[in-house]
Design a protein around this nucleic acid. Structure first.
Length: 405
RNA sequence: GGCAAGUUACCCAAGCGGCCAAAGGGAUCUGACUGUAAAUCAGACGUUUUCAACUUCGGGGGUUCGAAUCCCUCACUUGCCA
């Protein structure tokens, strides 16, 4: 937690009696992803500290789209956005408690934005915004300086988000907004609006962007986002993602993504230094985060599956039951035994095309039941495992299951 | 509204009539080495059953034996002028 509007003021506020705070999530996809997890956990930490969370899902801001530095967004239909709002609300709810003194509350900015007429918007809200200030926001100026430009729609985004803060201030006495530092311009837009329109001083916390030590983007596995929805990213995949965390990053991740105590994290940090090959820190991290997102049961199942599938042992020696449960945590298909490995790779989406499947096999990167596949004529039924299963592997750690019909 | 420049594969970016499925870089994938790590080295990277064929260079139309490359037109973007 780095940036803030008035650090001392805020510190005093957080140490005092419970305050109400909010954090918003825009429905730009059917699920939140790991990047959002930072925010969800921050909300949870603040709630644990006794403060009252407002979880906002942006039914209206999602229709507009906040300006990305690179390119204009494609608008989604109202129906799609409304559907996604539902999904995100469910996800946000999982991280908050709706019981007790400081019970959380879900809000949707469409509720107060939709009834607003263009005239009211321009007269009541627009007057508080200076174009010069708006132009200086990083998100906007980056786009203005690019050859992409920016539409009026996205330019206006910051006003809508500012409007949210004011509304929540008025309705719930909300005095703090949290968000990623890439949202800083939008956060301050709300702080400014509340000061101008209501003469009140409210705060914003921006969390630093999570980056990998090698400069690659955090939260992407094989170039794809790691989603919180288990149908988009399985608990198994989630566990694997964290297990593969760099030594250089793992301690930092533990601090941000787990609720372990300082002492526990320091102990793990020593283990990284002393016996990195055990990857105790990575295992702990993977278990902790997978549990936070999916719950204890699925997290343990992911570990069991990994042990079964990754172990040096013979897959054929595993029981049909173990295999069945391991396969449940993998992307899998049901197919006849006569299906070739190459086709199976395509159907399980381990590769994008048949050509790519052949290439992978030719490169020696494909395994059927832990045995390297020599040519693309091999069928998945060739060496079926107990229970009529087959495990496909691409490279070292991308797996899929086949149930032979 | 006028003038100019631009729109190339996941991203950036060359190419300006045949030698272009299209240079280069990044991202990604695979192999070797390892700890299911990093770094490094090697290979792959439009689709399909191959050295063979097919579909691509903003959309549509045209010139040509032949076009990503020339012409027309539409759309979008940027800059300057109004």
């Amino acid at each position: 937690m780095h940036v803030s509007t008035d650090a001392d003021d805020l510190r005093a506020l957080l140490a005092g009696p419970p305050i109400t705070y909010y954090c918003g999530f825009d429905p730009t996809a059917p699920s939140l992803h790991l990047g959002n997890l930072v925010q969800l956990l921050l909300m949870r930490r603040l709630q644990l500290a006794g403060h009252r969370p407002l979880g906002l899902v942006g039914g209206s801001t999602g229709l507009i789209g906040d300006p990305r530095p690179t390119a204009e967004r494609t608008l989604n239909t109202r129906e799609t956005v409304a559907e996604w709002v539902g999904y995100l609300q469910a996800q946000v709810s999982k991280f908050l408690s709706f019981e007790g003194e400081n019970a959380a509350r879900l809000v949707n900015n469409l509720d107060w934005t939709a009834p607003l007429s263009a005239i009211d918007f321009l007269r009541d809200i627009g007057k508080h915004f200076r174009v010069g200030t708006m132009l200086k926001k990083d998100a906007v100026s980056a786009r203005l300086n690019s050859d992409e430009g920016i539409s009026y729609t996205e330019f206006s985004y910051q006003i809508l988000q500012g409007l949210d803060f004011r509304q929540l201030y008025l309705d719930y006495g909300c005095v703090l907004q949290t968000g990623g530092s890439d949202q800083w311009g939008n956060l301050t837009s709300g702080v400014d609006l509340v000061r101008r329109a209501e003469g009140a001083s409210v705060h914003a916390i921006g969390t630093p962007l999570i980056t990998n030590s090698d400069g690659r983007k955090f939260g992407k596995s094989e170039g794809n986002a790691v989603w919180l929805d288990e149908s988009l990213t399985s608990p198994y995949a989630m566990y694997q993602f964290w297990l593969n965390t760099d030594d250089a990053d793992v301690v930092d991740r533990l601090k941000v993504f787990t609720f372990l105590s300082r002492a526990e994290i320091e102990a793990l940090a020593r283990l990284v230094a002393d016996e990195p090959y055990r990857r105790t820190a990575q295992r702990t991290l993977a278990l902790e985060v997978t549990t936070l997102v999916h719950g204890r049961g699925p997290a343990l199942a992911a570990i069991a599956a990994a042990d079964a599938l990754f172990g040096q042992g013979e897959l054929a020696e595993l029981s049909a039951e173990t295999l069945a449960s391991a396969i449940r945590s993998l992307p899998s298909i049901v197919a006849p035994g006569s299906l070739t490995v190459a086709q199976a790779l395509v159907e399980t989406e381990l590769v994008a095309s048949l050509g790519e499947a052949r290439r992978a096999i030719a490169q020696g990167g494909v395994y059927l039941n832990n045995v390297k596949v020599g040519d693309d004529e091999v069928t998945v039924g060739a060496h079926a495992l107990p229970g009529g299963f087959a495990i496909l592997r691409r490279g070292k750690k991308t797996l899929a299951g086949v149930t032979i019909s």
